[in-house]
Computed example of a mutant assay.
Amino acid sequence: MVALKRVCRFNVWINPVFDARLRAEPDIDLQIGDLQGPDSALKALLEQAHIFHVSPARDELPRRWHVTDELLASCPNLLAVSSGGAGFDTVDAAACTRAGVAVVNQVGGNAQSVAELAIGLMLAVSRKICVSDRLLRTARGFSRESLMGHEIGGATLGLVGIGHTGKAVAKLARGFDMRVLAYDPLLSAEEIRARGAEPVERAQLLAESDIVSLHCPLDDTTRGSFDAAAFAAMKPGALFITTARGGVHDEAALAEALTSGHLAGAGLDVWAPEPPPLESALLKLESVVATYHTAGVTHEARRNVAAWGAEQIIGILNGVTPPRLVNPEVWPAVLERRARLLG
């Protein structure tokens, strides 16, 4: 008799292609836990689960359901944790590796969507689109010249990180005849060039870029890396754009750089926490265009990550190496445990 393969997710919104794909597999039992129900019911599901498909939204998923050493200790059958997005902020990957549990994400599935919003933020800030919209709806007596902005065409764009999303941004930027610089310590100069940018050190990027756009992960090497010193090193009048993660940039230091006039504007999709408090200094500045971590939230991107997630889960349960494995060193141990649990 073939063992039933158990997949658990919670009842947060997901594109329906995920559930449909898994339920098309006769040997997979998909269970959906109710976050508004008793914790005991969710714990019981996780205790039996072979795969936990978890929301990557760190400020939306209650902390007790983040994947930590403590949670893993209560999940003896768990083979893999699957993030429902490109990031995995709710998953302690090192803890999973210690427990012999694979971690997979859906990196690249929302790259085009994030890249488009990054370009959109550049345009909105540089051309004062949101300021114009607010004034036209609420006031009269202002001139068109008071809303005069700048073209992004021909500007120098500095990308901090040129992975899946950064590469997509570089491609779009070429359509505006922008000079694209990139700093990415994880890639060779040759690879950065192949992805459509001129490789530079971080200091040169900050000094020469008219627009700095962040596309790096949040980890111990990037947390707080855009602080007062980094903003001071940027070109006077430059724009700061981020669709990366809240916590990479210091919000108070950014507000000061904008208030002082050193920076001309910012487009911010990510915050710490999310959403930011209404009294946030950044939200009070007209030079800031603010969005609610929606860069990757499009119908196309959400369908991609749901479809990719389902396919990776099916592959893992069948012993196939997943294409977006965060901790590949654990895979041999996962295969051994899979053989014991599922035969």
Rank of each mutant, 00 (worst) to 15 (best):
A257P: 11
G163L: 03
V131M: 05
V288N: 07
L278N: 09
L79E: 08
R337V: 01
P26M: 00
G100T: 13
R23S: 13
A257C: 10
R9V: 04
R202P: 01
A182R: 11
L186F: 06
G166A: 06
A20G: 05
T294R: 06
F231G: 07
E25Y: 02
L159T: 04
G154C: 00
A238E: 15
E279D: 15
E286M: 08
A44D: 13
E201L: 02
A194Y: 03
I316Q: 07
I314D: 13
S280A: 07
Q48Y: 09
T298F: 13
V114P: 14
P199D: 05
A229V: 03
G87V: 06
R223I: 10
P332C: 01
A252R: 06
G267I: 14
P62N: 01
M148C: 11
H50N: 08
A230C: 04
V17H: 09
P38D: 14
A207P: 06
R64Q: 13
A118M: 11
R9H: 04
G247D: 03
G319W: 02
H164W: 07
T165K: 08
K43D: 12
A306D: 07
V288K: 11
R144W: 12
R302H: 10
C75A: 15
L157D: 00
A99N: 13
G33R: 05
K43P: 05
R6K: 15
R340S: 05
P273W: 03
A272W: 08
C216P: 07
G158R: 10
G85L: 06
A3I: 06
L325I: 03
G33P: 13
I241G: 11
A139L: 10
Y183N: 12
D89A: 10
N110S: 09
E274W: 03
R179I: 01
S280K: 11
G153W: 00
F226W: 14
I192S: 08
V270G: 04
T321S: 05
L30I: 08
G154K: 03
G296D: 13
A333P: 03
N77S: 12
S280L: 00
L172C: 07
L79A: 04
G33T: 05
E336C: 02
N11F: 01
H262W: 05
S74W: 03
A197P: 11
R9W: 00
H150G: 10
G343F: 00
A94T: 05
G246H: 06
V200Q: 10
R21C: 02
M148E: 05
L186I: 04
D227C: 03
L72V: 12
D69N: 14
A124W: 07
E151D: 14
D92F: 01
R223L: 11
A281L: 01
E300Y: 12
K171L: 14
C130Y: 07
E191T: 11
A295G: 15
A115N: 05
V160P: 06
D133G: 03
H215P: 07
